[in-house]
Nucleic acid binder design. Sequence first.
RNA 1: UCCCCGGUAGCUCAAUGGUAGAGCGUUCGGCUGUUAACCGAAAUGUUGCAGGUUCGAGUCCUGCCCGGGGAGCCA
Length: 441
Amino acid sequence: MAKEKPAETPVVTIEQVGKHEGAEVVLRGWLYNLREAGKLLFPIFRDGTGVIQGVVSQKEQPGVFESLRGLTQESSVIVTGRIRAEHRAPGGYEISVTALEIVQRVPESDPYPIQLKEHGVDFLLDRRHLWIRTPRQAAVLRLRDEAIRAAREYMNSQGYTLTDAPIFTPAACEGTTTLFEVQYIDDEKAYLTQSGQLYVEATAMALGKVYCFGPTFRAEKSKTRRHLTEFWMLEPEAAYANLDDMMALGEGLVSHIVQSAVKNRARELETLKRDTAKLTAVKPPFPRITYDEAIEILQKRGNPAKWGDDFGGDEETILSSQFDRPLIVHRYPAAIKAFYMQPDPQRPELALGFDMLASEGYGEIIGGGERISSYDLLVQRLRENHLPEEAFQWYLDLRRYGSVPHAGFGLGLERTVAWVCGTEHIREVIPFPRMIYRVYP
RNA sequence: UCCCCGGUAGCUCAAUGGUAGAGCGUUCGGCUGUUAACCGAAAUGUUGCAGGUUCGAGUCCUGCCCGGGGAGCCA
């Protein structure tokens, strides 16, 4: 028979601790840091939702004092104590510990490797599975979650249906970039997808307004703070939609993601010391300029760009720094865009495509536009780009059977989240980044 | 693939071609309000690897390995 207990001490999260001021609670987490001041101990506990300072007096809690003294960083603990408002404690609350259960003690002979100080990137990336425990990394991952949640919410509010694309594909989506080749069952070869676009074009013809959201893979040997070999992309596609529809959708999606982060994740942005004034400004309408105008701006600023060039990192930074919110550049030369882009009927040398450049130099976060709906033109473009027509027969079917004008885009999740967080490098905004020469852990 | 930078204690970094060091972490001691606490002491090294130059190489030269930043390409 269970023993009668007067009142169970509630297990709470550190995030919620303010609601239990004056009460005794149980916290379950890890020892983040321990400061010793003679007969007083100041442990800092973390539980994934936040950190809180504890205090233990040798005089008042000799048993707890003895077991806590010398306890190693990141040892797992279950802590019982009373919550007090305490202005001297970081976070404003403090727990006076009355009982401590050590779930696992990190051995002194093999201490937790990540100290509360600066570390090198290589060291941290080799220990990414531990690095994510630090408050800053946890805040970034919560903002990633918020961005995904907000993005789905927005797509749903606009009447879009999630229809995910396959990860194994029979051939290149765009032909230009390098693919990861994998053996598919017996002797067949398959490739990891570099974009779900071709597939959402198909589902758009079935359901109207659709999007996919999943990982994509690029085997490019890019070594920059803006590139991952595995990254997540959200790709809307809508039948009967045009370039203007997609620029409006992209603008609405990005501003909803940013405003949701500001509204729902203020604490995390504070942890990251992000200047939220710059994020609050991200509201429609976003500035829109044509490629022609972009070239003019660049030339006025002394950049050697000439008509027909694509923009590199420098050009993107010059252009986006002119504005306080993301910049949309549209109608690029067809020659520098993907084979499936619809030409501008007014000026066939232009493609009805657009890019969205995040502010503050974070680069391209969206690329998209209208797709070619004509069977003949699409076949011509496949041939011009030396793409294997056999592999694209199913895609050509979309132009054989009830082809309609349609448009879409791809939004790079990590670039967007890196910009929202203000992180220096894109690798911090995905739990386990995959980069050239780095697939561990 | 190309260009640039780096690799020294568990970590972050010092060291004119001349005895390999500091701070943090770990261990021991001290301290009743600490804020990456502080103070005192101790232990800790195949200087990325292989050659070469030199009386002598962490330092100079060659090759290689590993990593970082950028270009190209893209989200």
